[in-house]
Design a protein around this nucleic acid. Structure first.
Length: 214
DNA sequence: CACCAGGCAAGTA
DNA sequence: TACTTGCATGGT
């Protein structure tokens, strides 16, 4: 069984079990980008509270966020945790987009994938997963997003080993799947859905697991 | 009550 | 280079 075939079966099983996830759970590219930073090591429910605070204050726009005092921003995103840290990270990101791309979000997202990722990764506080989440889900570009669930699930089933890093695991997907954003989008969403199902670390063969025997 | 969640960067040896 | 630690809220 080739890696390509195994990945295809993984995808098919998850899709059959959970159906389309239509990710990212956010309405605009800006909201998706902000959510990608806020969800770093944080439960999504807390991120929703933080984003709602920004929405209700009418501050969920590039201009408003960029002009917001750091302390005020921190208080608004408080429910998402690490709020001082994340306020700084958001500010770094907004500053980068302003400085390099004139604050034009559509233009920024339309840059070639390599440049987009390079700019994101050069921003302090934006690591591989956050950068790729923004590139895929906010910009719609074909890059596979790896996260803690991806390591756990693929590791448990023999497609990733312990010493594998982010970019290595990413290559497992990129090297064996067609580079299509809609596929990468759905695949990652499905992996997170499985990861959240409480089928976590101890019991790969819990009853009814869609990956039974995979 | 302890543990965890869709990371990342800085510090230590 | 390879570990370890700080960051923080809210749900289970």
């Amino acid at each position: 069984m080739s890696t390509a075939q195994r990945l295809q079966e993984l995808y098919d099983r998850l899709l059959a079990a959970y159906g389309p996830q239509h990710w990212w759970p956010g309405e605009t590219p800006l909201e998706i980008m902000v959510g990608a930073v806020l969800t770093q090591n944080t439960n999504w429910g807390n991120v929703v509270k933080a984003i709602n605070n920004l929405k209700q204050a009418g501050l969920l726009s590039l201009e408003a966020l960029a002009e917001l005092p750091r302390e005020r921003l921190a208080q608004l995103i408080r429910p998402s945790g690490y709020y001082n840290l994340k306020a700084g990270r958001l500010a770094n990101l907004l500053a980068m987009i302003k400085q390099r791309y004139g604050g034009d979000l559509d233009y920024f997202f339309s840059r070639p994938l390599s440049e987009l990722r390079q700019s994101l990764l050069a921003t302090k506080g934006i690591g591989p997963e956050t950068a790729d989440s923004i590139a895929l889900y906010a910009a719609g570009q074909p890059i596979f997003v790896v996260d803690a669930y991806t390591f756990r699930i693929l590791g448990r089933h023999g497609l990733a080993d312990e010493d594998m890093g982010y970019f290595e695991l990413q290559e497992v997907f990129m090297d064996h799947l067609p580079p299509e954003a809609p596929l990468f989008n759905e695949f990652h969403g499905l992996l997170v859905q499985l990861g959240k199902q409480r089928c976590k670390r101890s019991n790969p063969l819990c009853p009814g697991c869609p990956l039974e025997g995979w």
